[in-house]
Design a binder for these strands. Structure first.
Length: 338
RNA sequence: AGGGGUGUAGCUCAAUUGGCAGAGCACUGGUUUCCAAAACCAGCGGUUGCGAGUUCAAGUCCCGCCGCCCCUGCCA
């Protein structure tokens, strides 16, 4: 029997990582692998729950793997798999879906938000059943590895809770302790906001000037930082600084530029801070940090075939664990052994 | 499968009897600003779902097809 991992975490393949993804999740992955055995996944089967293009998805998945390796996810320490190469996720999802109440799923906020939005708006958008089952697939992602812990931020708390309760129900229903309850690993990660709209989280969907790509060129990074929103109106009574400025400081500290950040904060308190200086410091830090990633990424791209072979090998390793889980699940669920 | 809707710029939508495809938002550039925002000025943006037809002329009318939404069914 293959050893079960301490930590499991997944990310959806998207066009390119931005600094919000990096500081919010990926940097933490790189940290965690130092002290834990980690399994990380690029979950392309989740990506098809929304309208998408197949060629784009394939390219995004390949790029995401490269991006993660460039950021420091280390095949020597961790297992990085592509979800669709481990079909057990899907099989487990189906079995678990029958241990999950319809009402429970319709109460998932992510799904509710989407449906509510539909009623408010034109109501002519395609909502796949896959979107509804999304949290169950997520539960399968975790339970397939019987992982001990999952790093979560606030927004994924509810989905992890569902995974725990599905696993619990499975155990109870089939009178076993097969699935350990995955613990939430609360790690404080900085929440990077949109540069153009600092009251909402940084995301690519909002548009190019809202985010900074992790592998963007220096000139582009500097330009985007420069055009970031600062003070847009009056500060609220209880506000220390405007969301835009606070966001710039968050980025600066996330880049570990603490001494610079302290100096500039002192200037801010004294009313001496020139935002152009702050922006210069932020841009410098980002350029320095991402420059390393960019050069590592170039090496990986040059060896694309090697990377692919490596990921297939790691996915096969992940599959060994998942297949082992499924052997047990099939037995409990009443299916014949394969 | 049948019935009813719907499809126009990235998004929301307009376009008279068939008569030059437009607006707002978004985006790009400029003025302004320590940097931004806001404001103002300028600009980019189109296979009108696809295909055929009628016409001097089709976003608009006729026929076929496709996608999506709602309803009623059918099959497993």
């Amino acid at each position: 029997m293959t050893a079960l991992p301490d930590v499991l975490s997944c990310i959806q393949p998207t066009a390119a990582l931005h600094i919000g993804n990096y500081f919010g999740a990926v940097a933490n992955w790189v940290q965690l692998q130092e002290k834990h055995s980690c399994v990380y996944g690029v979950v392309d089967m989740h990506a098809i729950t929304m309208p998408y293009d197949p060629d784009e998805l394939r390219a995004n998945t390949r790029n995401m793997v490269i991006d993660l390796l460039a950021c420091g996810v280390d095949p020597e320490k961790s297992t990085l798999f592509v979800q669709s190469l481990v079909p057990e996720h899907c099989e487990l999802c189906w079995i678990l879906s029958s241990q999950c109440a319809y009402g429970e799923l319709s109460r998932m906020t992510q799904f509710k938000d989407k449906s509510a939005k539909l009623q408010r708006e034109t109501a002519d958008e395609f909502i796949s059943a896959g979107l509804f089952l999304y949290p169950v697939l997520q539960a399968a992602d975790i339970l397939a590895y019987r992982a001990a812990a999952v790093p979560v931020g606030k927004d994924q708390e509810q989905h992890l809770e569902l995974s725990r309760s599905i696993g619990r129900r499975f155990n109870q229903r089939f009178d076993t302790d097969f699935f350990p309850e995955p613990k939430a690993l609360y790690t404080q990660t900085p929440r990077i906001m949109s540069l153009a709209q600092p009251d909402s989280k940084m995301s690519k969907s909002a548009g190019a000037k809202h985010y900074i790509g992790l592998f963007e060129e220096e000139a582009s990074i500097r330009k985007k930082v420069k055009t970031a929103v600062t003070d847009t109106g009056e500060l609220a009574e209880d506000q220390y600084m405007s969301p835009g400025v606070a966001n710039l400081f968050t980025i600066l500290r996330a880049c570990q530029a603490d001494t610079v950040a302290e100096q500039l904060e002192a200037d801010y308190r004294g009313g001496q801070l020139k935002y152009s200086e702050l922006k210069g410091a932020v841009a410098d830090s980002l350029v320095e940090l991402t420059g390393r990633f960019r050069s590592r990424r170039e090496e990986l791209v040059a060896d694309a075939d090697g990377v692919e072979a490596q990921v297939r090998e790691m996915s096969a390793r992940a599959r060994d664990i998942a297949a082992d889980t499924l052997r047990g699940v099939r037995k409990f669920a009443g299916f014949p052994a394969m």
